[in-house]
Design a binder for these strands. Sequence first.
DNA 1: TATGAATGAGGGTTCATTCAT
DNA 2: TATGAATGAACCCTCATTCAT
Lengths: 220, 220, 220, 220
Amino acid sequence: MTESPDTDPTEAPAPKFRRRADARPDEILDAATGLFLEQGYAHTSVAQIATAAGLSKGAVYLYFPSKQAVLEGLVARAIQPMSMQVLAEVAAHSGSVREVVTHVLHMMAARLSDPMVLAVPRIVIRESVAAPEIARMYHDAVLAHAIPALTSFIRAGVESGELKPVDPELTVRSVMGPLLIHIFLSEIFGIVPDGGLGMDRLIDNHLSILFDGLSAEGPP
Amino acid sequence: MTESPDTDPTEAPAPKFRRRADARPDEILDAATGLFLEQGYAHTSVAQIATAAGLSKGAVYLYFPSKQAVLEGLVARAIQPMSMQVLAEVAAHSGSVREVVTHVLHMMAARLSDPMVLAVPRIVIRESVAAPEIARMYHDAVLAHAIPALTSFIRAGVESGELKPVDPELTVRSVMGPLLIHIFLSEIFGIVPDGGLGMDRLIDNHLSILFDGLSAEGPP
Amino acid sequence: MTESPDTDPTEAPAPKFRRRADARPDEILDAATGLFLEQGYAHTSVAQIATAAGLSKGAVYLYFPSKQAVLEGLVARAIQPMSMQVLAEVAAHSGSVREVVTHVLHMMAARLSDPMVLAVPRIVIRESVAAPEIARMYHDAVLAHAIPALTSFIRAGVESGELKPVDPELTVRSVMGPLLIHIFLSEIFGIVPDGGLGMDRLIDNHLSILFDGLSAEGPP
Amino acid sequence: MTESPDTDPTEAPAPKFRRRADARPDEILDAATGLFLEQGYAHTSVAQIATAAGLSKGAVYLYFPSKQAVLEGLVARAIQPMSMQVLAEVAAHSGSVREVVTHVLHMMAARLSDPMVLAVPRIVIRESVAAPEIARMYHDAVLAHAIPALTSFIRAGVESGELKPVDPELTVRSVMGPLLIHIFLSEIFGIVPDGGLGMDRLIDNHLSILFDGLSAEGPP
DNA sequence: TATGAATGAGGGTTCATTCAT
DNA sequence: TATGAATGAACCCTCATTCAT
């Protein structure tokens, strides 16, 4: 109701009435994200989604052709900002490899600390078997861009002599793995370090190992 | 090994050759593991499990009281050897930290390369939301033992001066994370490095980084 | 919309003529009553109820959460008028004990002659073992009121000197038993006196014995 | 009569061993009676009967061709003594009508106080709809003999002048109804008079009313 | 005579989807 | 645009009955 774009008389024809729709699809996706995360896709009924979104069951089908389309829509919505942001960070690598990696890890940690952001990859991981398109969507939109970007970035570091002559593709796993497993252990199994999740502490510890190694004396 | 009743001719009645039961629960679990992995728990019907195991639908219920019990049974079966083996390796740490970690990673890679072994944690991860007992079972039987064991092992390395003064709990994530994410990317998203999965190459690359660091020059 | 809007042009909105719901629960209960009576609860499937009520199987679950709830609903529906009517009759006892008892028996006979009314107690009796709540419902709503009311009524008759000094509680069984057993023999075993069920003849014969005794000469 | 043929030494070979069978059918019927009574026929599985009787499921089918045959067998077994005893009592009517009726009622009360005896008519009543043969069996074997016998007995009393000129057929209901309803209320609804079931008290109260009437003054 | 593994039909229940309003 | 009654296809599970041993 306060939407009324006609408050501004300059706005030419003004789309007649436009009830208040438009926000509806997003409300449905929000509701579905929460429910899919908590109960899983299979154990969430369309009726639950509708109720949580404040609509009737039938209305959901005005915006999405099927339950599966809701799942896909929810992933699609989350994908856009995701991929862009990661790419932007890496692309604009100013500073040393260590500085950029530090920045990227902290940024990812920050993003994934938002439950609504983390929700989507979690759902993707869970439902990817029953709905392979989901996995493909996520792959194409996020991983297919982010991983090569990181790989190239590592490769550049190696070529510039800043990094040892490691395999860039494999090294990406060493860079990202610890952070992701940290979130994983916490989210799925509730395994949290003694002092709390301590995302920053984890990243600091990881970066120190990543760049300087575990061994007390330097490399042989 | 004790099967062959004919090894000892004095053994009178000879167990008839066993009706055919006894192996049934395992056959059902095998069938279910494959189906749950491919289609997910929710999309697999008991009828499918029965058919895949070569029984009638009703017969499944002679061995498992419910479909969920099949899932739990499958996890329980996989848990026993898992936890034992990991623990044994770590407990019997002879040699330097680097040697033991190298050994453990290779052993895990070998085990997780067997699709039937990897299947269980994959299923656990997927179904843990809808069936939290599953996650708890796996946690209690595997992770609750393996992670503290590794943590203690790292701590000992730090105290002996072999490792830098890192946080042992967080460092476990740096040790295991890359391997697990490597498997993950391959299994869920089909993301495989250019030259193939190359588990050994990954571990070598990872170990080099883990102990010696990425930086071209030694630690500052 | 084309539903007879022309009956009364002045009648503004006219209740549309009711979708068709609203009556549904009663239709289902009617169908179930007949089927439960004829086949028993266990031998009646929800599909049969649905078909008899003119719906699909799933639709039954829009109105009742389970098959058992249908049984309970059917009893609950019958209970309300039952208990009220019996109580009202007894409470408003004007006239002699004999007149009131005569009236009550005839009223009960009339009510129980309606197969749909008799159906419910018959079902209750049959299903009370498998579904004890059913027996309790009927007990609480009907018997727990009717029997004490009759008992008090008999007691008043004794105290007023109209009746011999009998035990009121036990006498209630002498008052009601013959009528109930008469219906019972007819309904369950098909045992009917020579001249037909003859409910009125039975009541007359019973009342004569009840008040005046069987013995040819008066009491000793 | 053909029981224990080995008590007679003249009987030639004596059937070798004869495990201990012969008693098996009765054990099965005993077990089934208890279970049917407590849970109803439909909710009792053949496996339960077998377990309660101390046999395997399959063995039940060596003695009875179906679950329903167990039900019929159990009724058939109970019928024989039942009908005979009632008939004998009534046939040998020595003494006044009041004396005989008193005797019959007490005898019936005694018999029906044994839960195993009462069990059968209770089961018959419950399962007669789903298994009409059951009701017919009971009718033919018990009621078809007992009720006419009692009717004739009442008729004789009327004709001899000992009883008022009542309708004998209908009067049977007045004679038996109160006792049966008394048991009914107790067994099905748990409705018991204040001082306990008091079968004897009930019969005394009933007999007094039955023969002498409720009215304080004699018949008009 | 006895076992119990195995079958297969059927029942109760859920739920994505449709459609008249 | 919105509702929610209605459908129908599965799905999980039970159990009477059979049969190889």
